[in-house]
Design a protein around this nucleic acid. Sequence first.
DNA 1: CTGAAAGCGCTTACAG
DNA 2: CTGAAAGCGCTTACAG
Lengths: 344, 344
Amino acid sequence: MGVTIRQIADAAGVSRGTVDRALNNRGRINPEVSERIKRIADELGYQPNQLGRALSMSKNKIKIGVILQNPETPFMIEVLKGVENAKAEVGTLGCEVVICKVSHNNVRETINTMEQLKAEGAKAIAMVPVEDEEVKLHINLFVEEYEIPIVTFNSDIQDTERLCFVGQNSLQCGRAAAGLMGELIGANGKVAVISGYSTNPSLNNRVIGFCGEIKKQYPGIQVVDLEYCYEDNEVAEKVTKKVLDKHPNLTGIYMTSHGEEGVCKALRSYRKTNRIKMIANDFMGKNYELLESGIINLLIGQDAFVQGYEPVMILFRLLFHGEQPKGEFQYTDIIIRNAYTIPE
Amino acid sequence: MGVTIRQIADAAGVSRGTVDRALNNRGRINPEVSERIKRIADELGYQPNQLGRALSMSKNKIKIGVILQNPETPFMIEVLKGVENAKAEVGTLGCEVVICKVSHNNVRETINTMEQLKAEGAKAIAMVPVEDEEVKLHINLFVEEYEIPIVTFNSDIQDTERLCFVGQNSLQCGRAAAGLMGELIGANGKVAVISGYSTNPSLNNRVIGFCGEIKKQYPGIQVVDLEYCYEDNEVAEKVTKKVLDKHPNLTGIYMTSHGEEGVCKALRSYRKTNRIKMIANDFMGKNYELLESGIINLLIGQDAFVQGYEPVMILFRLLFHGEQPKGEFQYTDIIIRNAYTIPE
DNA sequence: CTGAAAGCGCTTACAG
DNA sequence: CTGAAAGCGCTTACAG
């Protein structure tokens, strides 16, 4: 089949060990010999055989650490599936993946876990970061001092030396919602936005994307209100009722985050489910049921699986093949579903 | 790490070759010894190491054949990418994938290619079938006589012994379009369906799914016309004009297949682009541009990549791990896009 | 029916 | 700085 290390060794008149040292820059080799071997490898079109490599490295595998935040939420459970899949895939190729879980926004725990992974010999880390100065410093420390590359996923932390980010383009997500809302309610109408936390950058971006695009593309549509429900159904119900009282001719609601059940409860009790078009985010909780029952008209979601799978694969490709990621932002697909495109 | 064949051999007091014969049912072994070895392997929780296996089999790789139809169409080019990805993935694990291309609906060529793959020693085949009696007979012949399992993809051919089908649920695709149309034009209106060929089962299913669901869910919406454009833009333009002449208050068009540019040209010349909501299929040709310009309101597509990737992987898992596919129908995701969720 | 040996392509101590 | 050898876990002729 392909060219082997042995053929290169023969062609260069050296031993296989020497070829290995040259091709993998292991040092302890005459630079000129190294150059010559590399040239020969190039000429022969050498492609290292992953199997041979993986098998011989299977005694001491290279470690990639993964830090998952909020592991018990439905979304993260799906992300975890992606991580586990990547783990199985690279596990077969001589790479070990260590998965750690930390609780929501816990700075201390996050940093400790980073340190612990380093102590265990992790050669790279994929993590859901916390928006925090100390965490930022640690990320830079790891990348620059320890030469442990870091990929953020799900939520990003900019102004750091992290290699890249895998997750949703939340601005674009908001814009997509605006486009759908425009299609659903037509050129004129009043819509309200209900978001989760005003402190969450991703959710804020969805709001900004939504409002900006409505203003730009649909001048006849007014965004009359923006409320926060803290992803709590009771609060969501309450604020929805408030909005409905204030705007009896409301025609649309965009939810950036959870609390859908509360909103729907309010819509039902006001008998507005047919009159008001609702667009919500993510395929978790009761969202599919609400979509099927027609209260939610369209759902926008992220590819949670990819958000877990890709970061590990990016680091694997970097460590094993020296392959750089395609770009700083690896945005996952923005998925639109109606009642007929629910999976399974 | 894991249990190895050597440990089993030691525990059983036999050689590694014997363990191999037992565990892989290669025959030429005392049944009792074989049983004992299997029991020991079970007790030790033996999991064969894919690397070792693949490496040692890398001299004579197991072959999987792929028969692609219409390889020059944009859709199939995307499918081919999926096939190539799977090929690369299993290529690393001791499996060779041979890709063959046949022209549209060519029965002779299809059957010849099947025979040729068999002659080359293919142990399984993934194929886009032709709806034809002789092809059906050949599929059954291969599966039953030659014990070469066959997976169909993209289009199915039922009443055969094919292992499973990977592709779109076209009925459901039509239903999804109906749901979107209902959201776009509201409870009342008149819509027309423009399809490709009346002889294409998949397209017909989209039509059936669409009309059925409109009738069921939106009694106020009337499907006033069904035309065929043979995926030709000029024909499409002509029939669209005919429809528009006949139904001046038309509010929606569902296209099951290509010819979008022709339809859009007609809509433009009648200045109807804003008045009529249009839902089209697949992400090929000018569809993204038409979506961005707002003439097409929503696009429904298939996961072409998966349609190429999965069939190969299903056969690989079957051949290498004896793993049966999850079900007879492996439907790919039905993807909805608006102008804001165009990839790249 | 069973075993001993060679080999798949690579990496890694160990000598020198 | 370089080479010879052993080893990763499995399969496969070859003897017997």
